[in-house]
Design a protein around this nucleic acid. Structure first.
Length: 427
DNA sequence: TGAAATGTTGGGGCG
DNA sequence: ACGCCCCAACATTTC
C-alpha cells in the first residue's frame, strides 16, 4: 500500500499545520515522522532542556495519534541515511513538510528533496512558521528590505486577517493505521533537565506599558513555542486585539530577521556591515566568564545572566543591556555572546538571536549606532527603580558578598568609543 | 530600543 | 528696585 510521509520538524503540533493538513487531503494514508537530527544533537548537551521539550511535545502528539489509531514514527541519526532506509521500508508516494528557512535546514532539505526526486517520490513543502516568507515582502525593485520600519509598513499593508484564517479541520481518519513503538527518553540517550519550558500566556493587555520593566513579568513566553511550532503563528495573530500593535510589531521583527537571514546568510558568521570588520575585540576569557556567570558587579547585567542560566529565559530589555555590556564595555566579539545565548535560551532562534546581537553591537542592519552605549546603572534607575528584579536574581545584593563592578563605566565607555571610532574613521 | 556633554533659561538669594 | 551670581531644569548637540 502506498502512503505519504509527513515530516515534523519545527512545527510540533497537529492543529493548523499547513503541510500536515495538505498531507491529510492527499488521498493517501499519512504516516507522521520525526527525526532527531544527529547533526544538530551533536552540538547540544545530553540534558539540553530544549530536547526534553521536543520529546514532551512528541509524546503529546503521539498520544493524540494513538487515539486516532495511528502513531508517530521516531528516528534518530543521520537524516539522509534515515531517508534512504525509509524509502526502502515503505511504499512512499509523496512527502510533505513545512519549510525551514535557516541555512543548514535549507541545505539539508535540498539534499533530501533530490534523494526523493531520484526515487520518483513527490515532495511538497509549505509555508507554515511565518505569515510572510522571504519572497513575499520585497521592495519595489524586488530586493529585500534591510530597514525594519518600511518592512513593517509593507507587511501590515499586505496583511489581511481573513487570508490567514485556516478553515480546514484535522481529517483524523486519514492517518495511517500504524503502531510503532514509541522510544523512551532514556532509549534515545537523553538526560533530564531541571529547566522546563513554561506555557505561553496571551494575557498581554498591558504589554505596551509594562514590557520594559523586567520585574513586571509582562512577557507572553511565546518565544519557545513559536520556535518549535507548538503553537501556530496564525492562531496567535488571530487572537490579538487591535490595541496589541506593539506586540504584533515584535512578531514582525521575528519575520524581518528571518528574511534577513534568508537573503544574507553570511550574517551567521560576519558583520552585516563590513565596515566594522576591523574592530579589535579584547575577548578576555576571564571577563567573558564573569559575564556568563552574572558576576560583573553591574546588577542588571548580573540579574539577567543569572535568570538566563537558571531558567533558560531572559527579559527582553535585560537582553539588550547584557549584550551591550559584553560588546561595548568588555569589547568581546558579539559572536561569543551570541553563541552563549544560543546555548542557553529556550527560545533560541538563529535569525532573531543573530539579528539582535548584531543590533546591539552596531554591526547589523538597521542597528543601534555604535555610539549608543547603555549605562547599566541608568537603565536600572529607569526600569527597576525598586530593585525588585535584581533582588530576585541576586540574593546577595547589598551585602559584602556581591562583587564590585569589574570595570569603571566611564572608562569602558570611552574605550568602546575609541575602538569603534578607529575603525569607522579608517573606512 | 541611549547617554554624556554642552548650551540656554529663569527663579531666587544677595548686596 | 536692580544687577549679579548660582544652579536647577530643560533643550540641543555630540558621541
Amino acid at each position: 500500500m502506498k502512503i505519504v510521509l509527513f515530516w515534523f520538524r519545527r512545527d510540533l503540533r497537529l492543529n493548523d499545520n499547513s503541510a500536515l493538513n495538505a498531507a491529510l487531503k492527499s488521498g493517501f494514508k499519512v504516516l507522521p515522522l520525526f527525526i532527531f537530527d544527529e547533526e544538530i544533537l551533536f552540538s547540544l548537551q545530553k540534558n539540553d532542556p530544549r530536547v526534553q521539550f521536543i520529546y514532551q511535545k512528541l509524546t503529546e502528539i503521539n498520544n493524540q495519534l494513538l487515539s486516532y489509531g495511528s502513531s508517530l514514527l521516531i528516528k534518530k541519526g543521520n537524516v539522509e541515511k534515515i531517508w534512504r532506509e525509509l524509502i526502502k521500508e515503505y511504499q512512499i508516494a509523496e512527502v510533505y513538510f513545512n519549510k525551514d528557512y535557516e541555512p543548514y535546514a535549507r541545505q539539508r532539505d535540498t539534499t533530501i528533496f533530490d534523494l526523493l526526486d531520484d526515487n520518483q517520490i513527490k515532495v511538497y513543502s509549505f509555508k507554515d512558521q511565518v505569515i510572510f516568507e522571504e519572497s513575499e515582502i520585497l521592495k519595489k525593485d524586488g530586493s529585500p528590505y534591510t530597514v525594519f520600519t518600511p518592512y513593517k509598513n509593507t507587511w501590515l499593508n499586505r496583511f489581511k486577517i481573513n487570508a490567514i484564517a485556516d478553515s480546514s479541520s484535522l481529517q483524523k481518519q486519514n492517518f495511517f493505521l500504524f503502531r510503532s513503538p514509541f522510544p523512551s527518553f532514556e532509549q534515545l540517550g537523553f538526560q533530564t533537565s531541571a529547566i522546563q519550558v513554561i506555557d505561553f500566556n496571551l494575557n498581554i493587555g498591558n504589554y505596551a506599558q509594562d514590557r520594559n520593566f523586567p520585574q513586571a513579568d509582562s512577557g507572553s513566553y511565546l518565544s519557545p513555542h513559536l520556535r518549535f511550532g507548538t503553537v501556530s503563528i496564525r492562531e496567535i495573530i488571530l487572537q490579538l486585539n487591535a490595541k496589541d500593535e506593539i506586540f504584533l510589531s515584535e512578531l514582525i521583527w521575528r519575520e524581518f530577521f528571518m528574511q534577513i537571514l534568508f537573503h544574507f546568510p553570511k550574517v551567521v558568521y560576519e558583520n552585516f556591515r563590513a565596515k566594522y570588520d576591523g574592530i579589535k575585540w579584547r575577548n578576555n576569557p576571564d571577563e567573558f566568564k564573569k559575564w556568563q556567570e552574572g558576576k560583573t558587579g553591574f546588577p542588571l547585567v548580573d540579574a539577567g545572566m543569572r535568570q538566563l542560566n537558571q531558567t533558560g529565559y531572559m527579559h527582553n530589555r535585560v537582553r539588550m543591556i547584557a549584550a551591550s555590556f559584553l560588546v561595548k564595555h568588555l569589547l568581546v566579539d558579539w559572536r561569543l555572546g551570541e553563541a552563549y545565548f544560543a546555548d542557553k535560551l529556550l527560545d533560541f532562534e538563529l535569525a532573531s538571536n543573530n539579528g539582535n546581537w548584531q543590533w546591539a553591537a552596531g554591526t547589523g542592519c538597521d542597528a543601534a549606532p555604535y555610539f549608543r552605549i547603555f549605562n547599566p546603572t541608568e537603565q536600572l534607575k529607569k526600569f527597576d527603580k525598586e530593585l525588585k528584579y535584581i533582588k530576585q536574581w541576586i540574593p546577595e545584593y547589598g551585602s559584602a558578598d556581591y562583587c564590585p563592578p569589574m570595570v569603571e563605566h566611564k572608562f569602558a565607555r570611552q574605550r568602546a568609543l575609541e575602538a569603534y571610532h578607529n575603525i569607522v574613521s579608517l573606512s
